[in-house]
Write a protein that binds this DNA or RNA. Structure first.
Length: 408
RNA sequence: CGGGGUGUGACGAAGUGGUAUCGUACGUGUUUUGGGAACAUGGAGCCGGGGGUUCGAAUCCCUCCACCCCGACCA
């Protein structure tokens, strides 16, 4: 992309409306624009980062044999009443009526529809286990939205649902998902802890939360050297129940949550399959969520400095930025265009900063947005020499032809 | 929903009774171009809405709304 044709509305002053560093940097770097409490416009660079996160998630879901789908945004009142969730979600749901006065909720999660799919197509033990997921908007009328997109009223969630013939199969698959989640968050560059958690409104027999460490995290967790970790809400004192040592207390944000739902929903919906003895049995269910915006916020919480966002290379909206020092110098423009084309052809996501701005403005923006590599095309362009700089690193002279190799 | 706070050009702020100020941003012109340029010039605000007090309200009073922070909740 050419910077002049793209849309990255960075602002010079650090936003004052919030204390969350991730929210400040997303606003400052032009990733998001708040329009109402808990509602945000996602601007182009945000979208690019979101695609990176979703790409990692999709690959791991595929490895975990979960299939992609999209459930409707609206769910009829009676469908949620069937699982008693119209009541349990209550005011947290946005609700509306259609022209025939039928009432709907904008679905806060999609267990019911996932069950409908299983009910229609999964009839035999031979079809189990079955896992289906979507990445879609969720709407929840939060009591108090906060932290920018960390806790918004509309957000993107990856929600997966698995169906099993028995508890053993669920246990096995749950572990597989735990592994997938660990891979996802690791690949996103997050420092996280997996804690035992309360299943809350979702119900079920057990759950674990994936907590991304953050100085101003919403939750407090206790971690022990023996490997034990938990949400401190579940403890009466800060002592490890396994080895008796004092827990290290940390703050973190929940980025993912996996649940063993058991028959909480399948019983309510009478979701059965036929086993090898032609006996009808209730399916056993699990569900697995990831908050996309929370992952992005957490990455920024963990990767930033005084200049801006220090995205891990695989998460950055662009991998390289070609900065033309003087856009009126033909030799510089020509060489920059050549490098731009080479990198584009090689599939490197590249920004070409062709704006008629001073060098300081361009580099400051690049460092704020979090682009890992800068290629500075300046005085020695006519000799084919440019400078190559890792974000905040030393500027090293390089021949234009060497750039691609240095980035890869 | 309880407690606290804030609303003034696009953004950030000043302005405690006399008709709105500054910075940034934006437009135009010239000179600039290796770390957020300089000069000149210009446009832009019924001061969150409504009501009241007053000769006169951004300023005082009432009320509503929005947003932020603390609490319950969650991906």
């Amino acid at each position: 992309m050419r910077f002049s044709k793209y849309f990255i509305p960075t602002i010079k002053e650090m936003p004052t409306q919030t204390d969350f560093i991730s929210q400040k940097l997303m606003l400052k770097s032009g990733m998001i624009k708040q329009v109402s409490s808990g509602l945000f416009v996602y601007l182009p660079t945000f979208m690019r980062v979101a695609e990176k996160v979703c790409g990692i998630i999709k690959r791991e879901m595929e490895k975990a044999d979960s299939v992609p789908a999209k459930f409707p945004l609206l769910i009829a009142r009676e469908d949620l009443e069937a699982t008693n969730r119209w009541q349990s979600f209550g005011k947290e749901m946005f609700t509306l009526f259609d022209r025939n006065k039928r009432e709907y909720a904008i679905s806060p999660t999609n267990e019911e529809y996932a069950c409908f799919v299983a009910q229609n197509y999964i009839r035999s033990y031979k079809d189990l286990p079955f896992s289906i997921y979507q990445i879609q908007q969720k709407h929840r009328d939060e009591i108090r939205p906060r932290g920018g997109v960390m806790r918004a009223r509309e957000f993107l969630m990856k929600d997966a649902y698995s169906f099993h013939a028995d508890e053993d199969s669920l246990d096995e698959y749950y572990k597989k998902m735990e592994k997938a989640y660990r891979n996802i968050f690791t690949k996103c560059g997050l420092d996280f802890v997996v804690v035992n958690a309360d299943s809350g409104a979702m119900g079920g027999s057990g759950s674990q939360e994936f907590m991304a460490l953050a100085k101003d995290g919403e939750a407090e967790i206790g971690v022990c050297g023996c490997g034990f970790a938990t949400n401190t809400e579940l403890l009466s004192e800060h002592i490890c129940p396994h080895c008796g040592k004092e827990l290290e207390i940390l703050r973190a944000n929940e980025v993912g949550h996996i649940f063993k739902l058991g028959t909480r929903y399948t019983d309510a919906l009478n979701l059965k399959y036929v086993d090898e003895n032609n006996q009808e049995k209730l399916m056993i269910m699990g569900c697995y969520g990831i908050g996309i915006e929370r992952v992005i916020s957490s990455i920024i919480e963990q990767h930033n400095d005084e200049r801006g966002i220090a995205f891990p290379s695989n998460m950055a909206p662009f991998k390289a930025n070609i900065i033309v020092i003087n856009t009126k110098d033909e030799a510089q423009v020509k060489l920059a265009e050549e490098i731009y084309e080479t990198l584009q052809d090689a599939g490197v996501e590249t920004l070409l900063d062709d704006r008629n701005e001073r060098f300081g403005v361009k580099l400051a923006d690049s460092e704020l947005i979090g682009i890992p590599y800068n290629i500075i095309v300046g005085k020695r362009a006519s000799e084919g020499v440019v400078e190559f700089q890792k974000r905040r690193g030393d500027k090293l002279e390089a021949l234009a032809g060497e750039i691609l190799q240095k980035i890869q």
